[in-house]
Amino acid sequence: MEFPCIPKRILIFTGHYGSGKTTISAAAAFALAASGKEVTIVDLDIVNPYFRTADFKALFESRGIRCISPVHANSNLETVMLSPAVDAALRQHSGYVVIDVGGDDAGAVVLGRYTSLIAQQPYDMFYVVNAYRFLTQSPVQAAELLSDIEAASHLDATHIVANPNIGASTSPDDVDNAYSFAVNTSRCLSLPLAFTCAVKGIAPLCKTRPIFPVSRLVKPVWESET
């Protein structure tokens, strides 16, 4: 599946807890790798204990994607530590780097650690919004959260990405009905709406365009195959 924008070297995904950053970061990495690009995905989430990019390390590696995750991710140790490999990936100036940032401004603080490195290179910072998330249901609320994230990370978002979903039961109508929210948020923030995401099963049935079909990676163990 092709990435629906012309990608810059660094692609940052930020947003509210549970807005779908991990799913979209993974989909972006898969799309770039499938087109033959060298891709590194960075799990920069040091606030969320479970359901994170590092869960899918083997899957990334099987598709030739390098995955950098926090030291001790998914162990029983909770340490606020970053791998030196993140610096190296940002400094090497080759290949694409997809960064999955932790939720809210709390998660975005760590991005500030790399701002000076990122700002001197071509990058896009995508602000992921989900119209069905509880505390960001209005464009004004979504705009307030982004200003907190920008203040914490010292980076400005360049695009909005809509990821309208209410979990496994999301219908094509749910996706289409959330389009006006994305457009209003885009207006409110004066940022372009880059694309809308939907899981592969329903993406072809949605009217919203452009649409980026993604795989629902983040799910509880009881939804795994028996």
């Binding site: 549970g18 509880f134 505390l135």
Partner: peptide
């Protein structure tokens, strides 16, 4: 209306 929420929230 239905919302997507984390258990803790």
């Amino acid at each position: 209306q239905k919302f997507l929420m984390k258990g803790n929230e």
